[in-house]
Design a protein around this nucleic acid. Structure first.
Lengths: 271, 271
DNA sequence: AAGTGGTCTAGACCACCAT
DNA sequence: TGGTGGTCTAGACCACTTA
């Protein structure tokens, strides 16, 4: 076995290790008792991604190389990669390699944009920045961002238009501590999606979201922004965007005019 | 190799087959070219479940037995089972066996009931049957049930109460052809959930749902049923419930009073 | 003690992509 | 042609449940 740094053949919890590795102390990362080897490999790979060793869109080393680097068999390495592919952290491409997932427009639309036309068609919205301000987190924002009440935040208001008609008003709150140096111009002039900006300029990758929805009556502000009468029913979405380890990074309150659009939830495969 | 009925070592598409199986014709089910072996195994297992050979809650044969029965290696068999477990068709229990998933109350609440309190807590609702009737599918129902307009349907109206307060009005439509012999009493006196009734009395297992949400103003009927004023904002959910092969089996329109509750969507792991 | 699923190994050949 | 991921094999030992 010419492997480099076997993670940890130590505990008797995981499956059989080769006999010639009965004793050697864990070299790089000690696996805790009860944790399968492939989970430990997975953790090391998440570290490599979130630390920036493997930046977005880059190709990671081949499975053969990684198996050797971690001192595990191909099957074990693949099981770790399988999980990260399922969570959209990595993307496999047969014949080409495995890549760190990048937040491009297609991914945003597919995974994080749930408003569709009445016929189920999904259009890309045009985004208009209406406000960018510094402030201090209120209780609601603090709770959902996992920060202290009164901690400094950025607040952004966007109006999203579909086929020229305003349909969604987004009010976004992010912690200033997580996005140091964020500016109005960075936000306004970004050539790509907002999650792409988070990822490329601040090293924050949004992996999943939790959303809570309710029907509300339009207040004066919402009514004006979306061109409906005060009191009209609007769909309110409160979204928390999460990164690695389920850490919250963005809190977004959206108002949606569902007269000609709707929210689509495909609680699909393998939830 | 003392395996029983190797699925199909025929085409050169899948990976290596043992040399001594170069020629033998496919015995039970011919795998089509380009289809991996484990997908074919998976298909056979789905057949066994949906045909009733493995009824709900029953233990399926052990992995060793199944690998032999299908003439594949354990790893291949496990890959097929992995998928069905991820889709909640099967449930693995270490040391006990693998079982066909059953529609009990816990599963309903976890996978198919998305209304939570303002604090995120989930309570089990009490269900009141308000109407049961035969009718003919309108265009909307026909489209979502995959049947012809005018085809016979059952229509059920339920009021769901949380802590004694009516919060949800469900209007359910199902094709009579799929639920022969369905009666008011079967519906009213079921000791378990409605999906449990579908599964046990009609052999229909609901696997997943697609939901479309919008905010609407309460009409007279909805307002009366939910105890709110006409015109109040209500959350409308239109749900299509699907079984194997994504066949629609139930179309449900719900109205939800989201004054003190909300819809929770955890577009979580591995969507 | 026997049987089940859970993890892991150390390979093999295949399909695909880039060169 | 060489390298990548995709599939598959034939085992092993471990952890857990049940009897």
């Amino acid at each position: 076995m010419k492997k480099a740094a076997p993670i940890s053949p130590s505990t008797s919890t995981a499956a059989r290790r080769p006999a010639r590795e009965i004793a050697p102390p864990s070299l790089s990362a000690a696996a805790r008792p009860g944790v399968p080897l492939y989970k430990e490999v997975r953790r090391l790979m998440v570290d490599a991604v979130s630390s920036g060793e493997w930046p977005p869109a880059s190709a990671i080393p081949s499975e053969k190389v990684l198996a050797s680097r971690f001192g595990v068999a191909m099957g074990t390495l693949r099981k770790a990669v399988d999980e990260l592919v399922a969570e959209h952290v990595l993307i496999r491409q047969q014949g080409r390699g495995t890549f760190v997932a990048r937040h491009d427009r297609a991914r945003l639309m597919f995974h994080f944009f749930h408003i569709v036309g009445a016929d189920g068609s999904k259009e890309t919205p045009t985004v208009e920045l209406h406000a960018f301000a510094r402030g201090r987190a209120d209780a609601d924002e603090a709770a959902h961002l996992g920060i202290a009440e009164g901690a400094p935040v950025f607040r952004i208001v966007n109006i999203l238009k579909l086929v020229g008609v305003p349909v969604i008003m987004d009010r976004i709150a992010i912690a200033q501590a997580r996005f140091p140096g964020m500016t109005l111009t960075a936000f306004r002039d970004r050539p790509n999606t907002i999650y792409h900006l988070y990822q490329n300029s601040f090293g924050i990758t949004v992996l999943r979201t939790a959303e809570r929805l309710r029907a509300v009556a339009a207040d004066a502000d919402g009514a004006r922004s979306l061109g409906v009468k005060t009191g009209s029913p609007l769909l309110e979405i409160r979204r928390t965007a999460l990164t690695f380890n389920d850490e919250p990074v963005e809190y977004r309150r959206s108002l949606v005019n569902t007269a000609k659009h709707e929210y689509f939830s495909d609680l699909a495969k393998t939830v």
